[in-house]
Design a protein around this nucleic acid. Structure first.
Lengths: 93, 93
DNA sequence: TTAATTTGGTTTATAATATAAACTACTTTA
DNA sequence: TAAAGTAGTTTATATTATAAACCAAATTAA
């Protein structure tokens, strides 16, 4: 009847992050922050969770003297997203 | 870019309840409980929230000596569900 | 040159949510 | 009449989301 919804993805902000990354394959923290309208603190926490789940890869380095955090979708992340979308359809009629 | 997701509906169990009610227009508490696999306690709380939001109507009466709770979608509930689904699409590619 | 502001975040505290466990009230069955 | 079942509600706890506070360095302005 109703399929389980992956709780890691069933969160507005984390879903937005994943959705963005599917489009671009790789994005900066600040870019994601602007596109989602999230606060830095909230985004920082949610990025950590996606990383811990193995759904995204996070690389930190310096660019033009400033720290830069880059996020990239993993294969598992893509699969999880696709499954989430498929399962979600069981709720939408 | 990303539309807001109504927090009342962005909950697995509440969304399932709404989804069920859209199909049948009216359902007993126990029927919803079976179909969703929820515990009675959890369902009781979520039904209250949907009622408080004005998304469902709840009528309690007795049937064959037992208390019976019937849930029915309201017009506002249907509109909110439709909007939720539309907004959700901004996340799904 | 040093004080204020900005960048790019993280950590921590608090508010909101979801869930399970315990409880209520009554009915049926043995 | 005692035990078990029906149909829930209430309450306590665990989880989640969010905001506020903080950190380290860079830049700009006085």
């Amino acid at each position: 009847m109703f399929k389980e919804l992956d709780p890691i993805l069933h969160s507005q902000l984390r879903l937005a992050v994943m959705s963005l990354l599917i489009g671009v394959k790789e994005a900066e923290f600040t870019f994601i922050k602007e596109k989602t309208g999230a606060t830095a603190g909230n985004l920082s926490v949610q990025v950590q969770k996606l990383k811990e789940a193995g759904y995204i890869e996070v690389v930190k380095h310096f660019k033009d003297n400033y720290p830069q955090t880059i996020c990239k979708l993993t294969t598992n992340g893509l699969l999880a997203f696709e499954k989430y979308v498929a399962n979600l359809k069981s709720y939408l009629g």
